[in-house]
Design a protein around this nucleic acid. Structure first.
Lengths: 218, 218, 218, 218
DNA sequence: CGATAAGCGAGACGGTACGTCAAGTCTTATA
DNA sequence: TATAAGACTTGACGTACCGTCTCGCTTATCG
């Protein structure tokens, strides 16, 4: 969802500076007044241009905001060290950090604003939510392939258990997602689906070092 | 979020039929065009009245919708049979069913629309989201008190693990929440925090009967 | 074309100060930037209100301007002294003066802008152009009734001959309409349609005094 | 207002087919939607080209339309037979016919649109309105020279009396200009300014034949 | 004959104003 | 004092043209 559709070679080419200026302005306005009070006028003025230039690039306000968020999210890469506990914890943290860089409350508002626009909603989910889901899914699959998880675990549900915790708190967090929360959630889940949880824990301890002994314990 | 504030006893009394007519109209409009396209004019016209009569009762559109949803949610009671597995599963199902009766996508939109209005947001959370959280928390606390859970489990995180799965899927479900999902999630979680999971499973089997053997397994 | 349509007794009544403020603002803007550069925003701002308040009163920009011009034209009354030459000259002068009080070039632009809107055009003609036509027609009919004109004169064409001179020069005058022009035109016309032109001239001389002897002569 | 300005000899020459195609398209669009709804885009598209090709030829929309109308008006020649009544009637008819071939209402709109652009307005008047004025003026001057009119007649006002009737009705005609109207107006005017009207009438009768006996009479 | 200069189609550019919609507030007459 | 009615201020919406610009290409004239 970064650069919008381009056309045949002919015609005056689009000013790519405007593209970035508009996305920058969008993020700035989002940060200052939030999604619901964001005005296209304001965005345009701040980018030194006018509304029609926005509509030429993105068909709706939602598309504009989505593009801005997607650019802000950037390309997020996750570790693959072979240590199931470490990788999951680290991977989730990377995504939490990426989402935390976004203006608060925007993601939820945008998602809500997609009600009734299925294509847009799909685009949003694919662009922003699917990458972390995929990454976590990939990690869990690796873990199962190397024998850390039971063969018959429902990986989709496991992904949802971790992902929904992260997403839910990001979207409407009554509490921020801390590193501690992530570790605890990962360890709790693995106790339920690992073939040999103590071995994983031991492995993580030599690899990283600061994992706690008692998941979900205060 | 039932009948709103009243004034001094004198003068023409409020038409209580209007209260219900307005909430009915709100739900109807929500169901037809969704939250973002809901117009107070439209609601008023449908209820056979005018905008000022709405504003006399609820200060903002958000309050109106919240009131309508709260009435739709109604009073939900959860079981307390002493069977940890059964109660959790049954309790979660009750709430999923209650939320499923609401117009789709409205809850998320409303919640998103509360960004920047903390009191309203708090009221929404208290009215709609807190009851299930409380009920689940209460169940887990009972379970711990009767010795089913370890003493040092972080109950808040446990509540969040279950609650976020349910809420997240309800709010923005890329997949509906099935009975099967609930059971599996409950059992997976309990494997992580129960003192003696097999005993709970056995207990549940004699009580109810249809619990599966292998959590999270296909 | 003054006060727009009113409704049943109930509801908040229209602010009549706004009506006049808007018409005043319209005339002011017309005077400053002309018809084609008149902006409803500008009119509204100047009247201390906003566009929707204008659209509530007049359906289009044309209606607004027409209303403003009509108010500016006001009620114009013409003399009826029995002196055919004097009355015609005086009556035409009155209307020329009334039109000269309007912002220049507006009338033509407005009329041109009515192309393709027959009802509006009819309203404009009725409101602004018909009164002088009627007045002149009435004068000529009186003159015929008292025997000053031949019985079989085509009064409509006579009205047009006088009216078109005035209107044409007002609308797109390459030259202003002077008192002298009016007198000369009246006298020239009457030579063509009067029963006894010299008698009329004599009558006018005793009544008024400053009529010229030789029509259309330099 | 024929072919617009050209530049130095070098470079690709202008496609003269485009000139005519654009003027044709302009007239077509004017005929279909009128002046105020004419879009340069539309004209360009219809001519199979694009806006810049228009602006390369004519600096403004007004110039384009003026050029189109001028081409449509063409060269109009008027008779000079020595019969004052016949020539005037015939000459006016020729011009009425020429203007009637133009799309209706366009002339007035264009003229109105020249408010505040004096050079353009002058060009328009010179191009479209001056020829008939000149022709009528020339006829009247010839008539005076041959002794048909009094020596001291104000020829400018006489021209205006005839011209304004024609122009006014053409521009904003509440009634079409008929042959009958023209004859009657000419005859009425001549009664006012001719040295010997009956002689002119007699002359016209032998020359043409179908002149009426009673000017301005029904 | 190759450089140069303009015209060409295409279409995006920065702008201005449009006419509409809904929000939330107010003022009335009536009950 | 609440009601139905409806006008009020406010502010943003998405669209339509304007007149200009920058492309990549074609077509002529000139050196």
């Amino acid at each position: 969802m970064q650069a919008p559709q381009r056309h045949g070679g002919s015609g005056r080419p689009r000013d790519t500076h405007l593209d970035t200026a508009l996305l920058d302005a969008t993020l700035a306005v989002l940060g200052e007044v939030g999604y619901s009070r964001l005005t296209l006028e304001q965005v345009a003025r701040r980018a030194g241009t006018t509304k029609p230039s926005i509509y030429r690039r993105w068909p709706t306000r939602q598309h504009l905001v989505l593009a801005a968020l997607a650019r802000q999210l950037g390309d997020v890469t996750v570790p693959d060290t072979g240590c199931t506990l470490c990788d999951l914890g680290e991977g989730l943290s990377v995504f939490v950090a990426a989402f935390d860089r976004m203006p608060p409350d925007v993601l939820g508002s945008l998602l809500a604003d997609c009600a009734g626009r299925p294509e847009l909603r799909a685009e949003l989910l694919n662009t922003l939510f699917e990458p972390p889901r995929c990454a976590v899914g990939h990690m869990l699959r690796s873990a199962r392939d190397r024998g850390d998880l039971r063969d018959d675990v429902d990986l989709d549900l496991a992904v949802d258990l971790l992902g929904s915790l992260v997403h839910y708190r990001i979207l409407f967090g009554h509490a921020p997602v801390t590193e501690r929360d992530i570790e605890t959630a990962v360890e709790t889940l693995l106790q339920g689906i690992a073939t040999d949880y103590p071995a994983l824990l031991a492995h993580a301890r030599e690899a990283g070092g600061d994992s706690p002994t008692h998941p979900l314990h205060t």
